[in-house]
Design a protein around this nucleic acid. Structure first.
Lengths: 144, 144
DNA sequence: CTCACATACTTCAGTACCTGAAACAACCAT
DNA sequence: ATGGTTGTTTCAGGTACTGAAGTATGTGAG
């Protein structure tokens, strides 16, 4: 177990991994860029996007963002200061605070989604058939 | 221009974008996880991986990481404190400091690459033909 | 050669993000 | 009622990042 590292490096797999890395890098780049256009950080944009669908307790936000609840407090604080998010009491449980996007917050979230042109640009060059097989392959990768 | 947002949302494209988002999320998750196993942050892991190929001036590192040079100083500082990276003078230009992975740094970088199992797990379920067409599609996406 | 300008790196102040521990309030089971 | 659990916040500590200022070195025009 000591001498044999990366037993057989299938060159095809290696290249695919590299390509995925490139896609990931590009996706992130464009996401941060789109967020910055709306004066949001990446974390703020992700959180606001979640809230634009439905209000969520802080706890759930932390789970979805895969971080500690204490972290969410700060991000929501900053968004609340800017009037994009508000905290509402949960009628069913007085411990819980529901974070919800304000009307303005929803507008910003939609603008963000629209300017997230990673959708159009790189996918535009693909035919419908190519998109179909891409969908199939990505699904298979993710179900593993 | 006010009423008509996201003119026609091709559902197929939308789903593919969503799937790419999921792949990106998963990739990042696993990358950070692999880095953490070696007591590295994501930024440190990326920088160390670059240096494990060849020594680079701080300036080049900033370009590759798409951040300010002043930021690289701090990351290299932390890695240098742990003996994973060292600063060498550039014989050709005394202004330049070449950051280079130490022997220990190279070991950690290789360990990182090995434990980056996003390669094996999700791609393992794909046949060679599927990998080939995935490669083709990713290439086409990136060349745009 | 010298002077002005550009380049490479660092330092510093300021912000955001993130974690883990501790505090607090509210829920819930016994 | 009591004791344990859960949801949120606060705080301390650390990393990441930017932009401005500072230092040292290279370089080109005169």
């Amino acid at each position: 177990m000591a001498t044999q590292k990366t037993p057989r490096i299938d060159p095809l797999t290696l290249e695919v991994v590299e390509l995925i890395g490139a896609v990931v890098a590009r996706y992130h780049e464009e996401y941060e860029e789109a967020a910055a256009e709306h004066a949001l950080t990446g974390a703020q944009a992700r959180l606001l996007s979640l809230l634009s669908m439905e209000p969520l307790p802080m706890r759930r936000l932390a789970q979805k963002l895969k971080c500690e609840p204490s972290n969410v407090t700060g991000i929501v604080d900053r968004l609340e200061t800017r009037g994009l998010v508000e905290r509402r009491p949960d009628p069913a449980d007085r411990r819980v605070k529901l974070a919800a996007a304000t009307e303005e917050g929803c507008r910003v979230a939609h603008g963000l989604r629209d300017s997230l042109n990673f959708a159009r640009e790189p996918l535009a060059g693909l035919s419908d058939n190519e998109r179909l097989s891409l969908r199939h392959l990505l699904r298979r990768m993710l179900e593993a």
